[in-house]
Amino acid sequence: MTWRQRPLPLLPPLLPPLGSVLSRLPAYPGSWLFARMLNASLAPQLAADTKAGLEGKLLRLRVSNLGIAFDVSWRKTGFAPSAPQATPDLAIAASLHDLWLLARREEDPDSLFFRRRLVLEGDTELGLLFKNAIDAFELGALDLFLRRLAPFSRHATPKDAA
């Protein structure tokens, strides 16, 4: 079993108390970190027309089982954190586990969507634009980040982090 096949590092019994704590924290620091991660991994790969389509649009990623959300928008040269607003242009929601599987390319967004484990709300055209950008995304920096998380997996061994 490779590191990509390992389960999410967090144990399910820890999620409710973790979610309770995280949901009480201010939203901005998490959105800032999420924007930085997107800028390091996804932004360099976005086509000019995708950047134009994202310009000024508020995107929200909600981790449904933790009760937290990250708000970002594209601003000319990259993703920037945004203050939470009542209605984002596009909201994407899934459990931490399903987001982990998506990030590691172990689960297809379409199959999660049709099984109602991935929820997209808002501008349909923007949702398709973002989904197509993610589908064309080469793992690169995100793959390195995920490899560094591997030792924290329940079943990982030190050689998995290499």
Rank of each mutant, 00 (worst) to 15 (best):
A48G: 06
R147S: 10
H155S: 15
D71I: 01
R147E: 11
R115H: 13
G30H: 01
A156T: 03
A162K: 11
T77W: 13
L139S: 09
W3Q: 06
G53S: 06
W100F: 15
G56L: 14
L90N: 07
L46N: 12
L33H: 08
M1A: 12
K51F: 03
K76T: 15
P109F: 04
L61P: 00
A150K: 00
T87F: 03
L128C: 01
S111N: 04
P29H: 00
I92T: 06
G30L: 07
K131H: 14
L120I: 05
A156Y: 01
P158D: 04
A161W: 04
W32Q: 06
V119N: 13
K159Q: 15
A133M: 11
W3C: 06
A150V: 00
R116D: 10
I134A: 15
D110S: 09
L42W: 07
K57E: 14
L11T: 10
A156W: 01
L33K: 07
F137D: 08
L18S: 11
L11F: 06
A43H: 11
G127N: 10
A133V: 10
F130S: 13
A156F: 01
P44E: 10
A40D: 12
H155Y: 13
F145K: 01
I68D: 00
L129S: 04
P26C: 02
D110M: 08
D98S: 11
M1R: 09
E106D: 07
G140R: 05
D123A: 04
A136Q: 15
E121R: 15
R62L: 03
Q5H: 12
T77Q: 15
D89M: 09
R148K: 14
V119Q: 15
L90R: 08
A150T: 04
P13E: 09
W32V: 07
T2L: 11
G122V: 09
L15E: 07
W32G: 00
D110A: 11
Q85E: 14
R62K: 14
V119G: 06
R104K: 07
L102K: 02
L128Q: 08
L112N: 06
G140E: 09
W100I: 04
P7K: 00
S23A: 11
E55G: 12
E106K: 07
W100L: 03
R6Y: 07
A156H: 00
L14V: 12
S20C: 13
S31Y: 00
Y28M: 12
R4I: 05
L101W: 05
G140F: 00
H155C: 05
I92P: 05
S95A: 12
R4C: 02
R4V: 03
T77P: 03
R60K: 07
L22C: 02
S153N: 06
L22S: 07
E138N: 12
G122W: 11
S82V: 05
I68F: 01
L118W: 08
P26E: 05
I134S: 15
L15S: 02
P12N: 02
T77S: 15
L90Q: 09
V21S: 10
P151L: 03
N132F: 08
G122E: 08
I68S: 01
A80L: 13
Q85A: 15
F145I: 08
A27Q: 08
R115N: 13
K131E: 15
K57C: 14
R104G: 13
P44K: 10
P44M: 07
L96Q: 12
K131Y: 09
L126F: 06
A150H: 00
